[in-house]
Write a protein that binds this DNA or RNA. Sequence first.
DNA 1: AAGGGTCGCAACCGCATAGAA
DNA 2: CTTCTATGCGGTTGCGACCCT
Length: 316
Amino acid sequence: MGRSPCCEKEHTNKGAWTKEEDQRLINYINLHGEGCWRSLPRAAGLLRCGKSCRLRWINYLRPDLKRGNFTDQEDELIINLHSLLGNKWSLIAARLPGRTDNEIKNYWNTHIKRKLYSRGIDPQTHRPLNAPAATATTDPAAVVSSNNNNNGKFQLVTELGSASNNNTTNNNATKIVKTESAAYEDSNSSSGVTTSEEATFTQAPLNLELTIGLPSDQPASLNQHNFKGHPQEDHQQQPRSEQQVLFHWFGNFSSSARHQGVCLCNGLGFQSMDHSCSCKLSMGASVVAPAAPSPPNSVTETATDNMYRLYTPLNI
DNA sequence: AAGGGTCGCAACCGCATAGAA
DNA sequence: CTTCTATGCGGTTGCGACCCT
């Protein structure tokens, strides 16, 4: 049995939206809010498919959309996020307030791809164009790719969404242990995690919704506790029971200031590749990664089942 | 000025998935 | 458990604007 169409095609307009249609949609959503896209067109007096209305609103009419050219900072962030997430445009868009997935996708295809090629970088693998194909799972793009191809089981969207929802709705926040100074040196000496002065704090609710969430809107408590002096870092981790972990961090650092540290997983050292490293992580294992080149800080994570962490202390 | 080619963006299409029935 | 519906996502297309000859 085939799927029924989302709307009656013969009674709907297609193509570019008129100003009148836009105004009708804006007026309706201002009055009734978003949602129930299927019934919206009729209720709003629009001869459009619900999907078309949703797309028009999300990509063009939403009041919080940022207009204008992408900044260099946004470019770099998109490149970094793409190296981490692949073509997950909606996830990338969630980290760029005021930008839509469609906009970023178009921008990637028309500008950033070219930019990367001019740098001699393959935009799909984020590796040098003349480099051999990725083989090691320590390559962030490869890790993401393998996860994405995990028979569809890598439910990044769902997990992020549910993490966000859980954190915001039931305050069942996870604990993160941050260690200061000594752990960075400890990690370099691969002697394990030594905590000079551990500060335990509560992870603030993740703000991954598309419509809101300027990074600077993060609660003050989060910024106070995360990576002082290094506001542009991002730490992402997807520990599962005995699964590959990608620990990724990035920021606008000069090449000389880039992380040259070692991630420690269960006491084993893993050399970081540029801004990221990955390793197997068992239940209860801890990950230590250098959070900043100077002054040396580090982050310690303890794996729990089905845990997904996305640190967002950054002010981009 | 005109015609063809290219680019960039808005919109569409088909599929995947969550949740309701 | 199965089927159906609504929504969201990513790939692709269509078309207007711009550029070049």
